[in-house]
């Protein structure tokens, strides 16, 4: 988990919202309205936390561990239970902001899928990433040129771009969106894939 953030500079400490230090925030609420508000707040907290730390995936079994501060407030010694975390993830998934790793559709439960351990957190959805990449290509006048995926992720040309350091799989998904729209074409074999923007 931490390895994914190594490429970026050490971020300033994340500013947790007010509710994070409110003990009942870590208990599942019974009142439906309150529960919905609780889920909403947790969802936005998870998204903003992931965005801040540039996390693209969460491993639930790890994230409930003590050293991971998102679901565990050491100061007030309160922890969000694993089932509640799953509920938050499910809430995000319904909103299109999360996806179980290993299955784009939730009925594929063979490898991961719903109830799996690793989950994509889409603080930007593949569509949004596609738009970002397209915008970057446009602004850097690289339409028609061919770029390797590595260049997009780690290359010097892409340094400073938002998608710098993006997960390869997520990049694939975003480029897939562009391919579907007819804005790009992917070729090459597994290790050295290239993409051409139209």
């Amino acid at each position: 988990m931490q390895s994914q953030t190594t490429t970026t500079t050490t971020p300033p400490p994340f500013q947790f919202p007010r509710e994070y230090s409110f003990p009942p925030f870590f208990t599942r609420q019974h009142n439906l309205t309150t529960h919905h508000a609780q889920l909403t707040k947790w969802a936005s907290l998870v998204l903003s936390y992931c965005r801040h730390h540039r996390l693209y995936k969460l491993t639930l079994s790890d994230s409930s561990a003590s050293q991971f501060p998102l679901f565990y407030n050491a100061k007030i010694n309160r922890r969000l239970g694993i089932s509640d975390i799953r509920e938050v993830v499910e809430f995000l998934r319904r909103d299109g902001r999360a996806e179980w790793v290993g299955g784009s559709d939730s009925n594929n439960k063979e490898d991961g899928g719903e109830g799996g351990d690793v989950v994509w957190i889409y603080w930007r959805t593949p569509e949004e990433w596609a738009a970002v990449i397209e915008g970057w290509v446009e602004s850097t006048a690289q339409r028609g040129s061919v770029l390797t995926l590595y260049e997009l992720r780690e290359g010097d040309g892409a340094r400073g771009a938002e998608f710098h350091g993006i997960e390869p799989e997520l990049l694939q998904k975003a480029l897939g969106v562009l391919v579907k729209r007819g804005k790009a074409q992917i070729f090459g074999n597994e290790d050295s894939q290239g993409v051409k923007f139209f």
Binding site: F22, P23, P24, F25, T27, A37, Q38, K41, R78
Partner: peptide, 19 residues
């Protein structure tokens, strides 16, 4: 109100979750 289930039992708080 909202609830908090902890080792000290069920406690009730002012609702700061649904504001």
């Amino acid at each position: 109100l909202c609830r908090e289930e902890g080792i000290e039992g069920l406690k009730f708080w002012e609702n700061f979750i649904d504001t």
